[in-house]
Each structure stands twice: as structure tokens, then as C-alpha cells.
Design a binder for these strands. Structure first.
Lengths: 195, 195
DNA sequence: GGCTAATTGGACCGACCGGTCTATATAATC
DNA sequence: GATTATATAGACCGGTCGGTCCAATTAGCC
């Protein structure tokens, strides 16, 4: 379809590996086998090696999230409903993978230190963008700027922390319960005023 | 003070490493250097090697959390206040370590797969215990069982997801904001009734 | 078709990984 | 003080890690 296929296959393999086992959890050999590519190709497309590929995969994931978000916000009028739907999708994916596929970025995020500068930078960008986009949606639907920003951070925390708990528990219950708690509260709290 | 010191030093070194870099992120050599012990000692005290040491460290961390929790709940009447204080402590620790020390268990939690059975089991136990203890405290202060359990899961998610975001951002702002959002809502929501 | 650049294929490398093993030292026990 | 567990010390091992390098192939272009 597009020009180079190998490059994309490498990125896809890395993206999937990041979601399932994290950066340190995959070896190059495994990656190359999944992608069906030899080592030469990797270092041709990504001279920076493993970490450059990781950055490319992270960016790819970021773009994917962007698309899904805008699609979701288009479909649902209420941003809270969109977020609820987003959580449902994540949960299905987690269950369907026998609790192996959580947040595609969380594991790398925790693995990466201040070294790995580029990886950190990419992650930082994406998380900030997600919070911003979320906050803007909330503001467009009547939330005050301050509380919208706060709620955006809380929602991302719910997603990350909920998936983490569900994964460890081998059950979707923790995420489900956490989500219930949050959505029940938002329902009781006046949606659109200040504070 | 106690009998064997080397064993404890190994556990402490592993516990710190787990918090900063995760299980795959540390090598035995680094661990041994920090603990000031030779390889023989490791395999004497932990015949199961790295992963057995990891389990011991995880259990150690679990016990520490237990203690801190009961202390916190003793000090504060309102469990919400206790949790707020808990978050403050976590935040200070994160900042003081230049955003390297987040949740001591989160990284291993995401790194570990269904293989690593013992590690998973230990993590599962601890997370479940934390949610339970938290839920019980909330129930003792008037929350209905159902909503208390849900809120407990949400709080753990806030802690985990907030720390993750803060770490990536290199700023405590995301966690602070997420916490503000949650605590403002709990304040507006009737504390002790059902649903 | 001939030339050039892009890509693939994989042998090869040193470093380090977790783990084993045996020799020595240090306590504990009688 | 001799004997026996217990613990320390580190040389050593095979395997795998990420990475380099070059030969072979393929695709693009005139």
C-alpha cells in the first residue's frame, strides 16, 4: 500500500511489544522475528537502534490516540460519555488479551529514566497533549478552565491506575469500580460551574 | 541489630531498585554493588535468584505500606484526610528524588507477565489488601460498602496514575491537579450515604 | 540495459546478563 | 578446641543482549 512496509512492520512490532512487555522486556531478536525483518533493516531505517525505534513507536501510538479521541468526541456529545466509551474499549482490549495489553505507554513511561531523553520527551508530549485535548473538550461543555484541567488529569490517572490494578488483579473489577466511583461523583456534581 | 544484615541489605537494594528502575532495569551486579555483597551471598539467601529476591522485596514493601497506612489512619480521624496526607508524602518523595521514585510497585507490576507467577501473586495480594483496608476505613466512617469499595479503587488509581503522569511530566502538577479534582468532588458529594 | 541508491540478509562482536560451583572464612554448638 | 553449619567471596559459564559491518539483492532512474 504505502512505500516501505518493513519500517511500518517494525514500528508495529515495537508498539505491540511496548504495550505487552515494555521496552526492557523485549529483545531485538524477538522484535525482528515478529516483524519478519533482518537486523540490517532495523539499523537501516533506525540508525539509532532500539531506542530510536521505540520513539517512533511511541509517536505512532500518540497519533493513534489522537485519532481515536477526535473520533470519540465527534461521536459523543458529552465528553464524559466519550471517556466512558474510551474506558470500555480499553477494558475489552485488556480482557481479550488475557490482561496482557494495558496502556500502550505506561510500561515504558515507568521504565524510562532521565537518561533515555528522547523517549521521555516523546512520552511527555503525548501525555500533555492528551490532558490538554481532554481539558478543552470539558471546557467546551461548560466546565471552568481550572476544574476542567484538574478533571482531565484525574481521568488520565483513572485510566492508568485502573488498568494497572486490573492487570495485576487479572480482573477488570478494579477499573470498573474506580470508574463507577468517578462517574457517579461527576453525575452528582454540577457539571458546568466554576470551582 | 538483627542477626543477618546481608539479607536485609539485599532486600533494601532490590526494593530501591524496583522503585527507581523496575525489575528488568537492574542487573545483579548493580544490586550486589549497592548491597555490598558478593554473588554467593545472594544465592545463599535466595536460592531462587533474582526473582526470589524480588518477591522478598515486594513483600517487604507491602509490609511497609501496611504500617504506614495503619499509622496514618490512627493519626487522622477522616480517612480522606489520611489519604491526602499519604499523597503529600508520595509527592515529596518524588520531588526529592528528582522524579525518579514513584510508586515502589508500579513498575514491576507492569513489567511482570503471567509467567513470573510468584511476583504477580505477591503484587496481587498487596494491591487487594490496600484496597480492602482503604475500603474498610471508609466504611467505618459512614460510606456504604459498595461505594467505599469503588472509592478505594479510585483512590489507588489516582495514586498510581497520578504518580505516573507526574514522573513523565517531571512535575508534580498532574498529580496535584488530579488530587484536587477528586478531593473537591468528595467534598461536594454527601460523604456517608448509599450509592 | 547500465548505473546508482535503497534495502535486505545475516555473520560477527564485545559486553553483560543471570546463574553455578567450589574454596574460604566466620559463627555456633558441643 | 574440634566439629559443624552458615555465610562470604569471586572465578567461571553459556546465553543473549544491542550493535556493527559488509555482501547480496532489489528498486529507481537515465
Amino acid at each position: 500500500m504505502t512505500k516501505t512496509n518493513t519500517r511500518d512492520k517494525l514500528i508495529a512490532a515495537m508498539a505491540d511489544a511496548l504495550q505487552r512487555k515494555g521496552l526492557h522486556g523485549v529483545g531485538l531478536s524477538e522484535l525482528l522475528e515478529i516483524a519478519g525483518a533482518p537486523k540490517g533493516s532495523l539499523y537501516h531505517h533506525f540508525p539509532g537502534g532500539k531506542s530510536e525505534l521505540a520513539v517512533a513507536a511511541i509517536d505512532h501510538i500518540g497519533r493513534r490516540i489522537d485519532e481515536q479521541f477526535s473520533q470519540l468526541f465527534r461521536r459523543h456529545g458529552d465528553p464524559l460519555a466519550a471517556l466512558h466509551s474510551w474506558l470500555q474499549t480499553a477494558l475489552s482490549q485488556l480482557e481479550d488479551s488475557r490482561f496482557e495489553r494495558g496502556c500502550p505507554l505506561a510500561t515504558v513511561a515507568l521504565e524510562s529514566g532521565p537518561e533515555d531523553a528522547e523517549i521521555r520527551a516523546a512520552l511527555q508530549r503525548i501525555f500533555a497533549a492528551v490532558r490538554l485535548s481532554l481539558s478543552q473538550q470539558l471546557q467546551q461543555h461548560g466546565h471552568a478552565p481550572e476544574s476542567a484541567t484538574n478533571l482531565a488529569a484525574l481521568f488520565v490517572a483513572l485510566y492508568e491506575g485502573g488498568l494497572l490494578q486490573a492487570r495485576v488483579a487479572g480482573s477488570s473489577e478494579p477499573l470498573r469500580r474506580a470508574a463507577d466511583a468517578l462517574f457517579n461523583m461527576t453525575r452528582q456534581t454540577p457539571g458546568g460551574d466554576a470551582r
